[in-house]
Design a protein around this nucleic acid. Structure first.
Lengths: 232, 232
DNA sequence: CACACAATTCATCACTCGGTGAATTCCTTC
DNA sequence: GAAGGAATTCACCGAGTGATGAATTGTGTG
């Protein structure tokens, strides 16, 4: 708290100051709360108790700071470890449950959800952030999750898992929709695990709720009247 | 195209000009592409081929313009109609499929997805927009969808459906994750419909992938080692 | 025709933003 | 202990933001 009384003498201050890390922390927080475009370097500098010009001194600008703040080797490592298939190598039966449990536990951590939320909030507005998020999902998740999946629909399976996980994350940590937000992990696992399991291993082209194969070529005929199919 | 040659004489121009509607259209587009905070009144005015001050003349300011542009009685009506249960009143067997199909068809419309995308993009950054989205989801969707559901876990069911639908919408229209983004509606329905169906009607507390009841109290024992359960 | 009012444009205001360059102070190394 | 470089602060710049108020020109009503 250098504000107020002492008028902040210029020049280097004695001792190690950890300014760079302070900036990174403040940046992660600000980006995660406001998204890339709305976060401001000045406010980040203020929260880090640092002069705004220092942000430009340590990082080259806003874009570089964002990239530096949103690198998440920890999350990658955790994901890698948790998504590692059992020693056998064949996709086990409880992948779905394991994913939900792992994620729910992971994002009760301190820093990881921030970086993830920063990516997500920023991706809503900023195209480069969206590209970063896409790449993260593709490279890290798809690569590690999808390699043992059956070839047809492999990308689709991973994308579906991604969509459900994304929605869950938003509901639980960003928007805080209430039954989901404060729900014990075990119940979440029981509720959502089977969904992911089905996305990963079941037949995704079969008819909807008859798990029995055979009645598959039959299109549901007259139900399309609930859907306005014409438009302007 | 009033820019360029004629230096845009001041004062009222003859005839009906439809300025208000032009501003609304431009606003919807801008908000849906950039989100509330990043959209600028000046750019909206430019796209509407109109003086920036006119935006303040017709609407009182940015917030009011946003609200005016994001009101979507059409979407509400479509949702209401499509979520209306069959004449009987009992939850039908194919609600899940119907929801996905309706949404996929709805957002191939022209204006509705814009307003919805505008709400979502803005909700990522702006708290008031988030409140609007929450309220819309709660009032319109939850109220109409949840009233025939079994009482225990009713909110949970609706919230789960919301999370999956939200993730799907983001993946398909905002972030454009690829297998999902350009997928025919029928395949989407087949892939995601059963998920929603299960969220709405199945037993959400049962064990994961054994749909057979009975082996439910059995905790999967040694699998929790894949999950770091302790944290700081 | 005259008058109130709506529609439009212009010239600003007060702010905030990201970014730059020089000046000052301290640490490190010779 | 002098020199070089790293860390910090200050004073700016140009651009863009939402917003305001006055001036100008048309429409509609009596």
């Amino acid at each position: 708290m250098r504000e107020g009384q002492t008028p902040a003498r210029r020049g280097r201050r004695p001792g190690r100051s950890g300014t760079r890390e302070a900036i990174l922390r403040a940046a992660r927080r600000s980006f995660s709360e406001r998204g890339y475009d709305s976060a401001s370097l000045r406010e980040i500098a203020t929260q880090a108790e640092v002069d705004p010009a220092l942000v430009h001194h340590y990082f080259r600008g806003k874009a570089a700071l964002f990239q530096a703040a949103m690198r998440m080797p920890d999350l990658e490592n955790a994901l890698t470890q948790a998504l590692q298939p059992e020693a056998g190598g064949v996709p086990p039966r409880q992948v779905g449950e394991r994913i939900v449990r792992m994620l729910a536990t992971l994002w009760s951590d301190r820093e990881l959800p921030r970086t993830l939320a920063g990516l997500m909030r920023s991706a809503a507005t900023n195209e480069r952030a969206a590209a970063m998020l896409r790449e993260f999902l593709g490279q890290v998740v798809l690569a590690r999750l999808g390699r043992d999946l059956p070839e047809p629909d492999r990308d689709l399976r991973v994308a579906l898992v991604g969509s459900q996980v994304f929605g869950l994350l938003v509901a639980r940590t960003l928007i805080k929709i209430e039954p989901i937000a404060s729900m014990p992990v075990d119940e979440l696992v029981a509720a959502v695990g089977p969904t992911l399991q089905r996305y990963l291993t079941a037949d995704l082209r079969g008819s909807a709720e008859n798990p029995s194969p055979g009645a598959r070529e039959t299109r549901p005929p007259a139900d399309s009247r609930a859907v306005p199919s014409g438009n302007a």
